[in-house]
Simulated scan of single mutants.
Amino acid sequence: MGDGKTGGKKKKKAVLEMAGEVLRDAREVAAVEAHWHVLGSGQVPDKPVKKYKYIDELAKLQFELIKLQEWVRVEGLKVCIIFEGRDAAGKGGVIKRIAESLNPRVCRIVALGTPTEKERGQWYFQRYVAQLPAKGEIVLFDRSWYNRAGVEKVMGFCTDDEYEEFLRSCPLFEEMLVQSGIILIKYWFSVSDEEQERRFIERTTNPIKRWKLSPMDLESRKHWVEYSQAKDVMLKHTDLKRTPWYIVDADNKKRARLNCIAHLLRQIPYKDLLPEALELPPRQEDTGYKRPAKSDQRWVPGIY
């Protein structure tokens, strides 16, 4: 008899705890949605969201990105988004979260390597021009022509004359892009010295992230102050009204991703053009076709 009462109390307690958890989740979701609903219409939060679940917020933003993608495709827009910042600032992370939910035929990532000997003899912007978006396309630049204002300047990979010419011609180049109809959006991911060091240490010990840390990254860290000076000069020359820079506080990776994507969605007014749900057609009737025996094919072993 006593066991029955104890079991009933435990069950009642579990139900109450579950109900309380559901209520807390509902309140949290309601608070977040009050800030972030209808992103496409341009509504923005009036203050930071204090409580949120990263995965839930990211999913909402990615769904809005799908709507934006469809708008870009249908309207034939040309969108070019530049991501710059110090090593380990989180550029690749936000690019991955933007692109992973989108159609690779509409949204593509450009991450150019060291220029070839032939490219070094070309007009500096030439190899980047070949990667610019066509109508109905979004291009995400994981680093860009701003290499000349950063790593090339600091590490001595360009001459002083080439550097000065870049500062002079870059605003003109970007003005031409905007004038041609390209929507140009530029993000600089700002990370503190302490946070960059922590991420570098993590990359040295984590085999999965080890590839992200190159000898050049380590060498660049020795020139922290010079990079800061180069960034300030770059902003002075290229942070203009028609082609502004947007600075992302990147010390917290997850917040940086959400803030950047939410900001991006507000830069291009779009409408929900998602197609209606599709109905699957009936399957073709079986006409007696005999498929080959499984033993005649090379199947991947079912290890898991």
Rank of each mutant, 00 (worst) to 15 (best):
V49R: 09
R86E: 03
G181V: 03
G4M: 09
H223G: 01
V74Y: 12
R168E: 15
D56P: 00
A256I: 05
V139A: 10
D193R: 13
G40T: 02
F141H: 04
D217R: 07
A88S: 12
E21H: 08
E276S: 12
V106Q: 03
Y54F: 15
K236S: 12
K294Y: 10
D239G: 07
A26V: 07
L264Y: 00
A19N: 13
T6A: 11
Y128T: 05
G76E: 11
A130F: 14
R168T: 05
L102P: 00
E202V: 08
R73N: 04
G302L: 06
E64P: 00
L278G: 06
N206A: 03
V248F: 03
A99L: 07
W211M: 10
V79Y: 05
L61W: 02
H263M: 07
F83C: 05
A134G: 15
P207I: 02
R27H: 13
K135R: 15
V72G: 00
F200A: 05
V300D: 03
A262M: 10
V110C: 10
G20N: 04
G76Q: 08
E175M: 00
R108C: 10
Y270C: 11
L23V: 14
V44P: 01
E202F: 04
E17T: 12
I201W: 05
Y289K: 13
M216C: 11
T204Q: 14
C80I: 05
V106F: 04
K236W: 04
P301V: 06
E119C: 10
A14Q: 03
E70V: 01
S220K: 06
D272H: 12
L167N: 02
L172V: 13
Y146I: 04
E70A: 01
K78A: 02
W224R: 08
E70F: 02
L278Y: 08
V110A: 06
K209T: 07
E195V: 10
I201M: 09
I182Y: 06
D25Q: 13
L172P: 01
V129D: 09
S192A: 09
L258T: 01
R266D: 15
I98P: 00
K51N: 14
K153R: 15
A256R: 00
K91H: 12
I201N: 06
P215D: 13
G92W: 05
A14K: 09
E70M: 08
I268H: 06
I247Q: 02
D193I: 08
S169L: 14
E175R: 05
D249H: 10
Y289I: 14
D87C: 10
L102C: 07
F83L: 10
D46K: 08
L132Q: 06
A26L: 06
R257C: 02
R283L: 12
P301H: 05
K222R: 14
F125Y: 11
K253F: 03
K60W: 07
A262E: 12
R105I: 07
F189W: 02
R148W: 01
L58Q: 09
L235G: 04
V129F: 13
L280M: 11
Q297G: 03
D25S: 12
Y52R: 04
V248T: 07
A277S: 13
I208T: 08
C107V: 09
P281S: 11
C158K: 07
